[in-house]
Design a protein around this nucleic acid. Structure first.
Lengths: 237, 237
DNA sequence: GAGTGGTCTAGACCACGGT
DNA sequence: CCGTGGTCTAGACCACTCC
């Protein structure tokens, strides 16, 4: 009999409501016995469930199952881990298209350096891409890629997935992405490129991406039209 | 000689640039020796640094220090852990005021239940509060508190901090808050209560709060005017 | 006081990166 | 191959909750 994964099994039970009545998980000791494993493994699984926002550990009390796990899970279809466009609601997108609005190789000056955190003098690809879904221009991505770390970019690559290129062709590992979201008045190019309709604001998601050498290889601003994306967060106290 | 905290010490060194040149932390074994502690404690400290977005662990390679830690830390003055208003940029707020726009005790109907996830029939306090900072109405909070879990609310309490009341008077522990942020067209009450100026959009931060029994005691929508708050996130791959 | 999760130690083996 | 971080086990003690 092969060992089953503690996390998968507990998640399944929680989501199917097996623990809803008493609002508690079995104690660590009971889980150790049931799954015939060590305390380390049980605690690792519980830690994952806590990160998912399904349960909460209380010292001296037990592991509490949060209410409305099923419904509030919908809140938590986390904006994926890959491409920036995935910040959009990815449900049944029928027809998506990427258009290159501009593609340049430039050198970082003081102004750009201040914004992107790239050192002055760094060569970078500056790419503006329009994300069209079902005939609406939902997002304008303004990418700054360090050309020393991400060399030989072309319009053709940019029309597809640059992240795919980074992983498959350059075999570079993406380690961490830091993001900040703000709401801003739409600027000239937002009006030009986005299907803003009556809105005069955009969401601006700023991303800094780092590879596994700790080097920042990307600064990106994604300008989104309202009503088309969500941003989730779980805070533990 | 009392033991120093591994996390605090490593964080201090990273932020002061001690490891920037080689972009690596010492190996776990070296840290175990230096701090005269167990591998568990060293790994716990590193885990915290990873969560802070300061470093990244790579198997077979080491713990890599991310570039621009100081600058991108600014990105990461995480929207605090307490009251919803802290989603605002909290720098040097001179003069803040809360005004109660409405205060009602109502019973959850089907429509409200669908939105708030409270069961139909639950008594709730429905409170609308205007957050005024330096003579601008920056946010409109629409709170739904389960009146069985948060009893005896008054306008006076609501004019101050309800979270303070929950913790100090009710001695209830807040366990988890799940949040979702969207951008929406401003509605009638947004125009009425907020200093929107020319903008016709608001940020809408939806919060579900749970106590340490796993019960959801709050559903809140915070409507913010643009340009006045940020939302941060760190994603590990 | 009994039972719970949180911290910590000591040790083993595995999987991956770079030489 | 060696050195790295990742996983896992077994066991001890601490801090908190609740009766």
């Amino acid at each position: 009999m092969s060992k089953i994964n503690v996390y998968d099994e507990l998640q399944k039970r929680i989501l199917s409501g097996d623990y809803n009545i008493k609002m508690r998980l079995p104690t660590e000791e009971m889980l150790i016995k049931e799954f015939d494993t060590s305390r380390y493994s049980v605690r690792k699984a519980i830690k994952q469930l806590v990160d998912d926002g399904l349960v909460y550990s209380v010292k001296g009390k037990g592991v509490v199952v949060l209410e409305n796990t099923l419904q509030s899970q919908k809140l938590n279809l986390n904006l994926g881990k890959i491409d920036n466009l995935q910040a959009l609601n990815a449900n049944q997108i029928l027809n998506r298209k990427t258009t290159i609005a501009s593609f340049k190789l430039i050198i970082v000056n003081e102004k750009i350096s201040k914004k992107t955190l790239f050192p002055i003098g760094t060569p970078i690809y500056l790419i503006r891409r329009i994300r069209n879904v079902n005939n609406e221009n939902l997002a304008l991505d303004i990418n700054y890629f360090n050309a020393q770390l991400i060399p030989d970019l072309t319009k053709e690559i940019a029309a597809g997935s640059i992240y795919q290129y980074i992983k498959d062709n350059l075999q570079m590992k993406i380690a961490v992405v830091k993001r900040q979201l703000r709401i801003e008045p739409a600027n000239e190019s937002d009006y030009k490129y986005l299907s803003l309709k009556d809105s005069n604001c955009v969401g601006n998601m700023i991303s800094l991406a780092f590879n596994d050498d700790g080097k920042q290889f990307e600064y990106t601003e994604s300008h989104f039209i309202p009503d088309n994306f969500v941003f989730n967060q779980i805070i533990q106290f």
